[in-house]
Design a protein around this nucleic acid. Structure first.
Lengths: 164, 164
DNA sequence: ATAGTCCTTCCCACCGTTGTAAGGTCAATG
DNA sequence: CATTGACCTTACAACGGTGGGAAGGACTAT
């Protein structure tokens, strides 16, 4: 079958199939006399595996590892499990980072009247995080229990790159 | 002051300061006779605002909107609040997506013995999500209450792009 | 004068995906 | 047989935001 069929059946776009071939995640497809790539059921099967792995957030290099394990009959399930657990840890770390942001924003939003007047504690806080203007150590109004503390400007989520 | 000083004081790297200037997020800096960019306290102030906005996950275009509101004295705080709330919604959506992935992986991991033997339900599920081999509608072992359902392959987190 | 640190611009890489453009191929129709 | 439309091919750029590095000029301190 052509790449379009393989794409439709596997859930991986034709573009991405070519890309995965290019970076070596999948083997180069066979070609017809005219140069068209040819795929069979097994290829679609593999592409489906890749699509589902991607849906779980695995990176291409992680998927490469999963594919290796998948094909190796003498694999140890512990290795697969370790990959999945590493991914889970990564997810929880990212979730925590996003939750920190959300908590901080919730705190700020709760202090903003949100009317037609210009005064806005959100902007004030973005402008000068440690101006002791009520937000710094105040009432905890409306904060859900268990929420992570939300303090702008002091540390904790400083690494801006690759949060997700 | 030079760009290096402005970077150190604002928390925005010199690289990013040049980038923000290039894309129009900040106005082009004044230059010395030799072509060096010059910054003053107000510039550092603005850059700090940008750094803190970025720490909260605002995109460059959102920060552009925040800067506009910040500078406009006749702003409505409701507009600022709306931006923050949109950001919060976005964060919660992303968190939910990541949580879905984590839940699915937790389910899979819990079914894998993780030993030296090759048989692995994680790989089986990645391979054929709807093979009715125990996972499909089974025991709910160890699932935390309130966790989102975790079914590979049927919808829900299909949009692979821009989860975060 | 020289060394060392800063600045400038320009290009490249990441990651995964999409878009677009210019051209070749296939299958079905007139 | 010719044309059409849907498909395929390659190649390149873009996205967001950040970092790395090279080549060359400017500044500062000894």
């Amino acid at each position: 079958m052509n790449i379009g069929d393989a794409a439709a059946r596997s859930g991986v776009s034709a573009k991405m199939i070519r890309y995965y071939e290019q970076i070596g995640l999948i083997a180069p497809a066979a070609r017809t006399a005219a140069g068209y790539r040819e795929y069979d059921q097994r290829d679609v099967h593999t592409l489906g595996f890749i699509a589902r792995s991607r849906d779980l957030g695995f990176s291409v290099s992680e998927i490469s590892g999963l594919l290796d394990l998948w094909r190796k009959k003498d694999r140890r399930s512990a290795d697969v499990k370790a990959l999945a657990e590493a991914r889970i840890s990564d997810l929880y770390r990212k979730i925590a980072d996003l939750q920190d942001m959300a908590d901080t924003l919730e705190t700020l939003v709760s202090t903003c009247s949100g009317n037609d007047r210009p005064d806005c504690p959100i902007l004030q806080e973005l402008e000068m995080p440690d101006s002791d203007d009520s937000l710094a150590c105040s009432q905890d109004l409306g904060r859900k229990p268990g929420g992570r503390a939300a303090h702008l400007s002091r540390g904790s989520l400083k690494q801006r790159r690759s949060i997700v």
